[in-house]
Computed example of a mutant assay.
Amino acid sequence: MKTPLYTIALALFFASCSSDNPKDKKATLEKLKKERTELNGKIEKLESELGQTKKKDDFKDVAVTELAEMHFRNYVEVQGRVDAEENVDIMPEVPGTVTAIYVKAGQRVNKGQVLVQLDDKVLKQSVAQLQTQLDLATTVFNRQKNLWDQKIGTEVQYLTAKSQKEGLERQLAGLKSQASMSKVKSPVSGTVDAMDLKLGQSVAPGSPMGIRVVNADRLKVKALVSENYGGKVNQGDEVSISLPDVPENLNARVSFAAKMIDPVSRGFNVEVKLPSNKKYRPNMVAILKIIDYSNDRALVVPVNAIQKSESSEYVFIAENGKAKKVNIKTGKVSDGKSEVLSGLKVGDKVIVTGFQDLNDGDSVKL
């Protein structure tokens, strides 16, 4: 009985393939599959009535996965780099010539520590001269004050002496402040990462001196995220960080997400703070997987186990030794797995291997 029926089905199939319209071919194929399923059912019924049983070879070997609720995460994956929160190129505040260098590359320094001394001979001489004038003005003021306290002399004499003394004090303070700028100090605590300065070299404000101090204890990962994820990625989101050069993986949270989209790159910056670790270095490559969707009670199936027709998606499940076709609705896809929103339930055995040539109702062996 099988031969005539399959011959008719094949004839219909080849006749339908004469059409050049892909949609017509797909529709015909779906129709033929449905007819084949119905024919298989009728054949099985007649074989059962005639007392015929299937041979062992009629069973198809399959592998299944039993569904259970699990954690499902969807990621936005971007590449970034490690950066130091305190990474400073030292610049002088005043022009001058380098007369002394107190540190070398690799040395640990503290905030405010003097790194370099610039020539300050002229300023020192000016300070000494002004100090002499201030000492004289102070002596005159003290004597004038004693006379004024005894009601001797005029108030104008007292106020003039006071004004001269205070004026010289302010000038001296300003000159000492200027002199202190000749001592180039570290604005942060950290390690001297570069030292390209030489004795006798002239430096000027606004130009790097060739000294860089990096605080490797305060590092972060910076990355640019496409504007497409502007509504999904926010400060506080969970993120998985992979550092291929270490190698190491760690979990953290987004510490900063910019609100403005860059008009050139069409993206926005995100930052994630890193824990202190001697292995981490600025400018290392970092892969960020920012979680933009989470479901702690999801049903998940491998993406390759899902088949598609024109109107639906479906999988095969093993039930009572038979393959059963089940239409499903899928959600997010991540790491080769798809979230199933409807169509399946906990305990269903989804066929993940051997489903390619299956039909609804075929006998299967796990």
Rank of each mutant, 00 (worst) to 15 (best):
S48H: 11
S48P: 00
E49R: 03
E49I: 07
E49M: 10
L50C: 03
L50R: 10
L50F: 10
L50T: 05
G51P: 02
G51Y: 03
G51Q: 10
G51E: 09
Q52E: 11
Q52L: 12
Q52N: 01
Q52P: 00
T53Y: 14
T53F: 11
T53R: 15
T53K: 12
T53A: 13
T53G: 05
K54L: 13
K54D: 12
K54M: 10
K55T: 14
K55M: 11
K55W: 03
K56A: 15
K56C: 04
K56V: 15
K56E: 15
K56H: 09
K56R: 14
K56N: 14
K56L: 14
K56P: 09
D57Q: 00
D57G: 04
D57K: 05
D58K: 12
D58A: 14
D58L: 07
D58P: 00
F59L: 12
K60P: 00
K60G: 02
K60R: 03
K60F: 05
K60S: 08
K60H: 06
K60T: 07
D61S: 12
D61I: 13
D61F: 08
D61H: 11
D61W: 06
V62M: 04
V62L: 01
V62R: 02
A63Y: 01
A63T: 10
A63W: 03
A63S: 08
A63L: 07
A63F: 04
V64C: 02
V64H: 02
V64Y: 01
T65L: 13
E66C: 09
E66T: 15
E66A: 14
E66W: 08
E66D: 09
E66Y: 06
L67P: 04
L67S: 01
A68H: 14
A68K: 13
A68G: 11
A68Q: 15
A68I: 09
A68R: 10
E69I: 09
E69K: 10
M70E: 11
H71A: 13
H71S: 12
H71M: 12
H71T: 10
H71L: 13
H71C: 05
F72V: 04
F72W: 09
F72Q: 01
F72C: 01
F72M: 01
R73P: 00
R73H: 05
R73W: 05
R73F: 06
R73G: 05
R73T: 03
N74K: 10
N74L: 02
N74E: 02
N74V: 02
Y75P: 00
Y75H: 04
Y75A: 01
V76D: 03
V76S: 03
V76G: 02
V76W: 01
V76M: 05
E77Q: 08
E77C: 04
V78N: 03
V78P: 02
V78R: 07
V78H: 01
V78M: 03
Q79M: 12
Q79N: 07
Q79H: 05
G80V: 15
G80H: 14
G80Y: 15
R81V: 15
R81I: 08
R81P: 00
R81D: 08
V82S: 04
D83L: 12
D83A: 11
D83Q: 09
D83T: 13
D83M: 09
D83E: 15
A84K: 07
A84W: 05
A84I: 10
E85G: 11
E85D: 08
E85T: 11
E85H: 12
E85K: 13
